[in-house]
Design a protein around this nucleic acid. Structure first.
Lengths: 233, 233
DNA sequence: ACCTGAACACCGTTCAAGT
DNA sequence: ACCTGAACACCGTTCAAGT
């Protein structure tokens, strides 16, 4: 994988820069793609044919590098028709893309989920787009952020869950220990394969649809509450 | 914090064992409780007044230690009335306890969420209890595991989210950049504080209620589908 | 059996030194 | 400005040596 395996570069500034933020990020993503691959600056430097200390010229440290990756991923998720569709229609492909984009880099997803995001510009823009659509559609003001956070939590949790070897709930020979679970597991597998979908994908789509439907229904409950309060006043 | 700060133990087997799996796990949890505290075997050994290599006598490695912690946490979550209540009533306090139990150890949650769980006995028992209640209540067989996974994903994602400094979506001075988001954020805060709840807790409860409601509603859709299919046959 | 102590192959980060 | 190279304070894990 290494670009130039054994070409030794002398000390001192190279005639033309070997590195760049873009090249580092690009290589970092390929490193994060492999499952067991330890995501270390040392391994990244190796892949780039460079010394680890060279990376600190472009990123203050490992955390800043990961923040840079996160920002790029958020941008990649992109828009999904929030202008032309209702928020609860547009949010489904958005969530799907979110999960797929973050789930595609198993080596980094835990760090991405853990790292403080404080005021990342890409995330703010992303959320603003969704919040604007929800306000336009008359979603209760105080429920907008909770709804977005709920969907994001579900997506992050699902992306983490999809990292499990095959399936978290896989009673291999515990059919005797957990008969109900085993039966349910088989039914779910059969259903997914009948629909020509992977079990994890089918599970994600089902959960996402349920969550969004529940969030929409919560609107109506709140509206009824508001009406009752208004009538009383 | 260290039990015996500078008492040097000579090499060789101590007269009575200094360590035990229980004591190691207990200390490991206190280490995982602190936010920034790096959760390392070295730090754990330091806290126990022992050399790092001594730990390998009780746990094969760091992963096995974390697996042990995970199992203990799962047990702690415990039962929540699945026998006496309907599954969608009992699942709410269960999910609440789940999030609180795992969220109480910020130093370890990412590792807990990431580590493969393959066939952990405590988790199997936990899931079996829920699956049994759902079957009893007539939840569609093929939707049981997806529903459980959806809730678990939401809980894990919420626990991770609650690690963020205060709130992920906190546009400090980006009121101009993200006016809709800022307004929604304020409304959510005001609503939460009016109900004497933290914003994160209010958000979690709202999302959980929506998700469970959506999962229950999905039952009816599936049932209608089944009826239609049955009528056709 | 249960611990120490030394050793090994790693980390991330800092900083002087080279061009 | 941009990289190497050496140094520092760490890791997790293995294993001989002690009692």
């Amino acid at each position: 994988m290494t670009t130039e395996p054994d070409s030794k570069r002398p000390a001192g500034r190279p005639r033309t820069a070997v590195l760049s933020r873009e090249r580092i990020l690009e290589t970092a993503f390929t490193l994060a793609d492999v499952r067991g691959g330890d995501f270390t600056l040392a391994a990244l430097a190796r892949e780039l044919g460079v010394r680890p200390s060279a990376l600190h010229h472009y990123f203050a440290g490992k955390n800043e590098l990961i923040a840079g990756m996160r920002g790029q991923l958020t941008t990649r998720v992109g828009d999904h028709g929030f202008d032309s569709l209702s928020w609860h229609e547009a949010i489904v492909p958005w969530a799907r893309a979110y999960r797929q984009t973050f789930g595609a880099h198993p080596g980094i997803i835990a760090a991405l989920a853990t790292l403080p995001v404080d005021d990342e510009i890409e995330s703010i823009i992303d959320y603003e787009r969704i919040a604007a659509a929800m306000r336009r559609d008359g979603y209760p003001e105080h429920r907008i952020v909770p709804a977005i956070v709920a969907i994001e939590s579900f997506v992050i949790g699902s992306a983490l869950d999809s990292l499990a070897p095959e399936d978290n709930l896989r009673p291999v020979d515990n059919a005797r220990l957990a008969p109900h679970l085993t039966a349910a597991e088989h039914a779910a597998r059969a259903y997914a394969s009948a629909r020509a979908r992977s079990a994890v994908d089918e599970t994600f789509e089902f959960g996402l649809a349920a969550l969004v439907a529940g969030l929409v229904a919560a609107t109506e409950i709140d509206a009824a509450e508001a009406d009752a309060t208004g009538a009383r006043a």
